[in-house]
Amino acid sequence: MSNWEILWASRDVFWQGFGNTLTIFSISAVLSFLLGSLLLFSMEGVRPRLKIPLRIFIDAMRMLPFLILAYLFYYGLPSVGIRMTAWQAGVLALVLYHGAYFAEILRGSRITLSSGQEEAAIAQGFSRPTMFLRIILPQLVLRTRGVMGNQLIILLKDTAFLVIITVRELTAAANSLSSTYFIPMEAFIVVIGFYWMISLALEQGIRFLGRIGEKRGFNNA
């Protein structure tokens, strides 16, 4: 049997790893986007009480490697009595880490938004949460779609770190196959192909979003 045939015979392992990576990626992408928007909203307003602690949290996340956060949740927290499975610790770390980055991306675009529409919205009787949800957030998403897409690709790549804290994702699948059959090269080529495919699909999605944005007059971003 050639090496490729061995890999084809064990395609279930790949599919499982691919499924796990995709699940972890989608859950953390959605949750970290929500967290990022929530963080931004909590820093809005005239005199937000949470502004300084949130600023410190976001800056701390931007200065830490992702893996050290995953280590903290998986290896560090059990000693203060909080136990999580590798899966839960990994997703939580991804959400908190990338949530901070999403918040920072949105904030960077938020400060360039003109205050005129905000005043107009309030004059029309919008409450702050509705205004944020209906007027500010959609604009920010369309404006920052490029950076947002890059961040999603970084998030996808960070899921591979979870192999170190024993999550069974795509890289773990390649690693275990390569050590069982001793065919590292082929196994990793397949897995890199999978990652490439997801990235290309993401880039395509961003381009699609770009067309919507252009239709609504955001072609400057």
């Binding site: 790549k157 590292p184 890199i192 490439w196």
Partner: peptide, 23 residues
């Protein structure tokens, strides 16, 4: 460039370190 930007570092390092000897 497109491939290197899409490949996670962990995967790339395992790939290079493990498939080096087979080459």
């Amino acid at each position: 460039i497109s491939l290197a930007r899409a490949t996670p570092l962990v995967t790339l390092i395992l790939f290079i370190f493990l498939s080096g000897p087979t080459l």
